[in-house]
Simulated assay, not measured.
Amino acid sequence: MFQPSVPTVDISAVPADAVLLDVREQDEWDAGHAQAAVHIPMSQFVARIGELPEAEPLFVVCRVGGRSAQVVQYLVAQGRSAVNVDGGMLAWEAAGREIVSDGGQAFIA
């Protein structure tokens, strides 16, 4: 079956002021996320699509990039500009990008 390519960007190319959409589940989010990220779990995505920021492109992230790729594919089909963050939050951490815990405590992994 043909799968259209998903726009993807390396973590190093994500601008500091990018609008980051985190589609991981609540427990993953609570464990650590990018401070300015918008959180809409993939399992609730269609029901909460009205909460998406207007900014384009949206940089979509999950743990390693699989779920975010699916969300990007959906958004692109809806006419939105979105890109998948290659490697997800694991790559975000590995690159030394700031992460905050659910309590708002900043840390660098």
Results as ranks from 00 to 15, higher is better:
1 M>C: 08
2 F>V: 08
2 F>R: 07
3 Q>A: 08
4 P>C: 08
7 P>V: 02
8 T>K: 05
8 T>H: 02
9 V>A: 03
10 D>A: 10
11 I>N: 05
12 S>A: 10
12 S>F: 12
12 S>M: 09
13 A>R: 11
13 A>T: 11
15 P>Y: 10
16 A>T: 11
17 D>R: 07
20 L>D: 00
20 L>Q: 00
20 L>H: 04
22 D>C: 06
24 R>Y: 09
25 E>D: 11
26 Q>V: 14
29 W>Q: 04
30 D>H: 05
30 D>R: 11
32 G>V: 03
35 Q>P: 07
35 Q>W: 14
35 Q>N: 14
36 A>H: 15
38 V>E: 01
39 H>P: 09
39 H>G: 07
42 M>G: 05
42 M>N: 06
42 M>Y: 12
42 M>K: 10
44 Q>V: 10
51 E>T: 01
51 E>G: 01
52 L>F: 07
52 L>K: 00
52 L>R: 04
53 P>C: 06
58 L>Q: 00
59 F>D: 00
61 V>N: 02
61 V>P: 03
62 C>V: 11
63 R>T: 12
64 V>L: 13
64 V>G: 11
69 A>D: 02
71 V>C: 05
71 V>H: 06
73 Q>D: 08
75 L>A: 08
76 V>R: 08
78 Q>Y: 14
79 G>W: 04
80 R>Y: 06
82 A>F: 03
86 D>L: 09
91 A>D: 03
93 E>H: 09
93 E>I: 12
94 A>P: 06
95 A>G: 06
95 A>F: 14
95 A>M: 09
100 V>Y: 14
102 D>F: 14
103 G>K: 10
104 G>V: 13
105 Q>G: 09
106 A>I: 10
107 F>V: 04
